[in-house]
């Protein structure tokens, strides 16, 4: 794994990994866990992303070069001994209809029937590659290349909470009502973020997410 280091201002160091996304992301997550397992006194925050790791530090207790040396050594150790464990989280999804208004459009874009699309989305667990954009918002992937579609031409000003959406080779889930440009194919009832719990986010980077289709007749309650 080749890492490039650069400063993001005077209090943060950015490490970017080159290579295939799936591999770089696993390296980022392994390094994050190694760093957090034994946090140095100068560490203020760690922000793992898809192919990069941002380390925020107290520049008055450790120099930029000192942080870089520490991370370089940690990365060498981590590369030898992966410290990264996976947890599988099942996420029930109501696909299509009003819950997934873009399901038909995505079917056309991917040249699949909605049923095949849902089956592919539920076929195997994908990894939470990062949490970002909004509190508790997971970037889940990488999806099979058949599901790799660009963002919607026109973003929505408000996407309902729980919306399960596709774009850029990943699945995202909107934890709350947010503007969004991804294609909404379904909705989950699983809450993803609660600031009053610890940890506040239901998912964490490194988790494996298994989407499970909720059959329409099981959830429809007639009066």
């Amino acid at each position: 794994m080749h890492w490039s280091f650069s400063s993001l201002g005077d209090s943060a160091l950015l490490m970017e990994a080159q290579g295939e996304l799936d591999v770089t992301n696993q390296a980022v997550l392994a390094l994050t866990m190694a760093l957090e397992a034994n946090p140095p006194a100068w560490l203020r925050a760690v922000v793992p992303a898809i192919a990069s790791l941002l380390t925020c530090f107290d520049p008055l207790s450790m120099s930029h070069n000192g942080v870089m040396e520490y991370l370089r050594k940690l990365q060498q150790v981590t590369a030898l001994q992966p410290t990264y464990h996976e947890r599988v989280v099942r996420i029930p999804v109501h696909y299509g209809g009003t819950d997934g208004p873009d399901l038909d459009a995505v079917s056309r874009l991917t040249d699949m029937t909605p049923t095949d699309l849902i089956a592919l989305h539920c076929a195997e667990p994908y990894r939470v590659m990062m949490i970002g954009f909004a509190p508790g918002f997971p970037y889940i992937g990488p999806l099979p290349s058949d599901l790799n579609i660009p963002r919607r031409a026109t973003p929505r000003s408000a996407v309902p909470p729980g919306s399960v959406a596709l774009a850029a080779g990943m699945t995202g889930i909107y934890p709350s009502r947010l503007p969004g440009g991804w294609h909404v194919i379904g909705r989950t009832d699983l809450p993803l973020f609660n600031p009053e719990t610890n940890p506040p986010a239901t998912l964490r980077p490194g988790d494996r997410v298994q989407f499970v289709a909720v059959l329409p007749d099981l959830r429809r309650r007639h009066p």
Partner: peptide
């Protein structure tokens, strides 16, 4: 650019 961590002041 792949989404990456940012800090205030960026």
């Amino acid at each position: 650019i792949l989404s990456l961590g940012v800090v205030p002041g960026t």
